[in-house]
Design a protein around this nucleic acid. Sequence first.
DNA 1: CCGGTCACTTATGTATACAATGGCCCGGGC
DNA 2: GCCCGGGCCATTGTATACATAAGTGACCGG
Lengths: 230, 230
Amino acid sequence: MRASDRAYATLLDEIQRGLLAPGAVLAEVEQATRLGVSRTPLREALGRLASDGLVAQQSARVTVVTAVDAGDIRELFEVRRALEETAARLAAERGDPRAFADLADAFAHATIDGQDALDDYYALIARFDRQLDAAVANDYLTAALRTVRTHLVRVRRLARDNPGRLAASVAEHRLIASAIGAHDAELAAHATHVHLHNALANILAAVDEPAESATTLAPFGNAHTRKGAA
Amino acid sequence: MRASDRAYATLLDEIQRGLLAPGAVLAEVEQATRLGVSRTPLREALGRLASDGLVAQQSARVTVVTAVDAGDIRELFEVRRALEETAARLAAERGDPRAFADLADAFAHATIDGQDALDDYYALIARFDRQLDAAVANDYLTAALRTVRTHLVRVRRLARDNPGRLAASVAEHRLIASAIGAHDAELAAHATHVHLHNALANILAAVDEPAESATTLAPFGNAHTRKGAA
DNA sequence: CCGGTCACTTATGTATACAATGGCCCGGGC
DNA sequence: GCCCGGGCCATTGTATACATAAGTGACCGG
């Protein structure tokens, strides 16, 4: 594996997990030393993160992890709605009914009690996303969705996974999968719309009234004073 | 301006203009020498082009300009429809009515006779796109649309700008702009859908029955044998 | 004569040295 | 005491040297 790939993967993971908080300064020599690579592959990694929108050049001399506020989340979901409704529609037209019937079945039997069950559920969603991409068979759409999903990982950290919402989410996914499996493009699109509406509402409720969790993404005010994990 | 920016801008322009045809091999030392920069900034430029989807690493040793076939164009327009319909809807909800009323007026008076009028028309479309981005005020959507538009520049080279299609395109843009100016989100979205349907049909007609133009993007068969402008 | 293997060439990937620029601090003057 | 200017330092941007691996061609063996 290339050093630049390792640097990218590591930084991406740390940003998504919140270890590198919004506003954290990413100095090239510092990060290169920390990750055990030279500046050249590190710069490539930073370039990819910048193209993803996860870091930005605050000024000519300082690169920081971008912040995510409620407005950003609304914007992100506007794009997500557009792309995922389209994906659901196209998958319903083109997808293998069997694959999505199987997924609908898996969602029907999914549970959310305990960490193991939760991990299984998240893995199931990942499988659903992969099937969706495969069914749509559109590289441009998949690439656009990849960017959205990259940001979503960070956004999800802001939402509290309350059991009620999780149970509803399971049911929503089941409906989407079964609609795609039934070649019902309209239902798939509308069910996706509803699912994303509910998911956004849940996230915004958590953001507007922040949890006491220490992992909450820092607001702009003190963010730029935080340094990367040294 | 940074050397990497110049290299990126130059290569982007050459790919979009077809000077670097699909399949053209982009060797680092060769291109670096040609563009008068060292390999480091050139690699950064190639990385950005790869993230745009304009070049791809065919194997571990060879980077080529990506090809565009009719299937790619259909895929691209699926994403474009999703994003631009959303953009039109959001602009209708949020945009400054005056700005789009002015644009509608400009489209109403636009002409397409002669190269100067055509240049003016393309500039007007660019102005429309900028106003749309400003009205939508969504960085994620703007970024996604930027990628689509980057590819569209190449796709447009495939379409013949026949007068009938151009006249219809003017009218379609006028309707979209006026719908946004009237805060009519539904009409704006549907008019965008119709416009993109017509634009795609026009392009596919040209691609399926290629013109005699020497600038037609080369098919895969002989493409990989072409070298970059040396 | 054909196929396989090894070495060589040439490309990319990485590290490091050099250049240039922007910020910051200190000192002086108003 | 505050503001402005100059010089120093740190950081990014670029070039180049080095490492590594993949592809190619030639040579040897069957």
